[in-house]
Write a protein that binds this DNA or RNA. Structure first.
Lengths: 240, 240
DNA sequence: ATAAGATATATGTATCTTGCATATTAGTAT
DNA sequence: ATACTAATATGCAAGATACATATATCTTAT
């Protein structure tokens, strides 16, 4: 921008400024399906609807810091893979005032997912149903066992759909998938996570070979225990 | 966010709000290399440095509309491929005040690039030099024939690097590459654009087959004219 | 006219990747 | 022991890709 335009924003009272928030898609895999953690709105607008946890960005707080703070304050999670997703800026996305929201994707291991539910009982885990295949895109729906199909507040259904799309797109060319797994995991667990996110079943030997060839997997020599069949070896994620 | 937190932002005077801008990476291909259009800052801070065109987001303006407006007002371009890139929110990215900037990537055909230079003589075309290969990422540098190496204002070098990274990543799984070409083009022109963006040379027969197989190309039956050699057929982009 | 030169277009082949079927291994349960 | 289950390993066909080479079509020079 040039200086002339800058002056429009320089005087804090001369022009109205939007509020800026972060909204978090807390995403994990439960029962072989992608799941998200939601909070019920107890005020208007969208009272009684379910919403993504979010919060205002402080004037001296980076976007990443705001996302990390919301993750801590609203979900009790100290550490998770956090990445900026997309910024939603429709004028009427909040009926009260102009709010621009920077959406973040938080990937949770099953342990972190359950720990968040323990720490914050207001959180509702809901399964994400993706009615399109591949990276076609489109709306997704959210269902919880007790409450049935949920209608999300604001444009949060769009945010959630964007999150699923992003995750599907990045899954096999990047290492984000490991953020959904514990430190030690079997190849079957890894494949289950990929199948849950992609919504398809994958060929086992091909999946194994492909992932092993990427150099992301370090065999530990340890094996899972307590199985009624041959135990699988435990692997650890390592950057190549 | 819940209602308690919302009240922090509801009263416009209770808490300071950041300003929100859009910054545009106006990207094209010139002389076989990626190029960007820049504006010189005539005021502090970063006086005399080169910057990406940008502007404040109006209180009743969507982010996409703000980006389209800046494209029109600062580059005189009515139509271009515009996509949101990333939102930059470091606290000190502007020394005067807190400004969060939503960066957009605008892809220009060579015609649009030249038309912008004609319409807005203040714009400087500069070549982007990418010192890393593939999608490794990292800083990029900017050079203009007359001015030599340029140092960009603010965090605009980061924004530019993000743009290059995004474009490289999307180039061969999406159809964005066609946004850099005129309506009718030869396969050689298409390959030249890909090579410029990727920074590598590609195998000609393999490239042809791969793109033809994607179903994005419609042969027109027309051929380029005035060549000192066999004329190439002209193709048109079509969604499959 | 004819040949030379340049580049488009087409094709053939080796190599690499991927999908699928099948065999082998290591554990528990009966 | 034998059956059962799932992990692990291997073999092979099908597909994709890189590279080399051949053919086609235009202009320019002689």
């Amino acid at each position: 921008m040039d200086e002339t335009d800058f002056l429009r924003g320089y005087d804090p009272n001369a022009f109205q400024r939007p509020s800026v928030t972060v909204d978090l898609v807390l995403l994990g895999v439960r029962n072989g399906k992608p799941a998200v953690l939601l909070l019920k709105r107890d005020q208007q607008p969208y009272q009684g609807r379910w919403a993504l946890p979010g919060g205002f960005v402080g004037i001296d707080e980076t976007l990443d810091a705001a996302a990390a703070r919301v993750l801590r304050e609203k979900a009790g999670i100290g550490h998770a893979h956090l990445e900026q997703l997309y910024t939603f800026g429709a004028v009427d996305r909040d009926p009260r005032m102009r709010i621009i929201s920077v959406a973040y994707l938080a990937l949770l291991t099953e342990t972190a997912f359950d720990a968040a539910l323990q720490a914050m009982p207001a959180l509702l885990p809901a399964a994400i149903q993706v009615p399109w295949s591949g990276e076609a895109g489109g709306p997704v729906s959210v269902v919880s066992p007790e409450n049935g199909a949920l209608t999300l507040a604001f444009d949060h259904a769009d945010i959630l759909a964007t999150a699923v799309l992003r995750l599907r797109g990045k899954l096999d060319y990047s290492d984000v998938g490991f953020a959904l797994l514990p430190e030690l995991f079997t190849l079957r667990q890894l494949q289950d996570v990929h199948e849950a996110i992609l919504g398809t079943s994958l060929n086992k030997p091909a999946f194994r070979r492909r992932l092993l060839d990427k150099g992301w997997l370090a065999a530990t020599g340890a094996y899972e225990a307590g199985t009624a069949y041959r135990p699988a070896e435990l692997y650890r994620f390592q950057r190549p």
